[in-house]
C-alpha cells in the first residue's frame, strides 16, 4: 500500500514537472509568436506611412518592366533550364541527414555511451562522405 502511494507521489511530481516544462515551452514560443506579430505590425505601419508620404504618378513607360534599361523583349517568366535540379535533391538528402545530428549531439557524450557513439558518428560521417564523393564522381558538382 505504501509503495503504491509513493509511486503515485512520484507520478504526481513527474506530472507536475512535465506540466511545468510544457508551460515553459508554450510560453517561449508564444513570445516568439508575439515577436512575429510585432514584426508584421512594423511592416504594416511602414507601408502605410510610405503610402502617405510618397507621390503616385504612374505613366505607361514607368510601369514597363525595367529589366536592364532597354525595353523588355518577350516574357519575364521564361522557362529556364534549372541545372541545380539534381543537386537540390542532393541538398535535401544531406539536410535531412544533418537534422538527425542535433538530437544526437546533445546526448552522445553522456556517461555510458563513450566509444559506441564515436563509432556511430564515424558511420554517419562516412555515409555523408561517400554520398558526397559519389555525387562528385557523377559530375553533379561540376558546372563548367
Amino acid at each position: 500500500m505504501a509503495t503504491v502511494a509513493s509511486a503515485d507521489a512520484v507520478g504526481g511530481v513527474r506530472g507536475a514537472v512535465d506540466a511545468h516544462l510544457a508551460a515553459g515551452y508554450f510560453h517561449a514560443y508564444s513570445v516568439v509568436g508575439l515577436v512575429a506579430v510585432v514584426g508584421v505590425l512594423f511592416v504594416a505601419v511602414a507601408f502605410a506611412a510610405g503610402h502617405l508620404l510618397r507621390p503616385v504618378a504612374p505613366t505607361r513607360e514607368k510601369m514597363l518592366t525595367y529589366e536592364c534599361g532597354v525595353d523588355p523583349v518577350g516574357e519575364g517568366w521564361a522557362q529556364t533550364q534549372i541545372r541545380y535540379y539534381v543537386y537540390s535533391f542532393l541538398y535535401v538528402i544531406f539536410a535531412v541527414d544533418a537534422i538527425y545530428l542535433f538530437p544526437w549531439a546533445t546526448v552522445f557524450a553522456a556517461p555510458g555511451f563513450g566509444g559506441t557513439t564515436l563509432v556511430e558518428m564515424f558511420v554517419f560521417i562516412g555515409f555523408l562522405a561517400v554520398g558526397l564523393l559519389y555525387a562528385w564522381k557523377k559530375g553533379v558538382l561540376e558546372w563548367t
Binding site: A49, G50, H51, L53, R54, P55, V56, A57, P58, K62, M63, L64, T65, Y66, P72, G76
Partner: peptide, 11 residues
C-alpha cells in the same frame, strides 16, 4: 521614404 513605389505592370 519619399520615392514613388513603382510596381511594374507585368509583375
Amino acid at each position: 521614404a519619399q520615392k514613388e513605389d513603382v510596381v511594374p505592370a507585368g509583375a
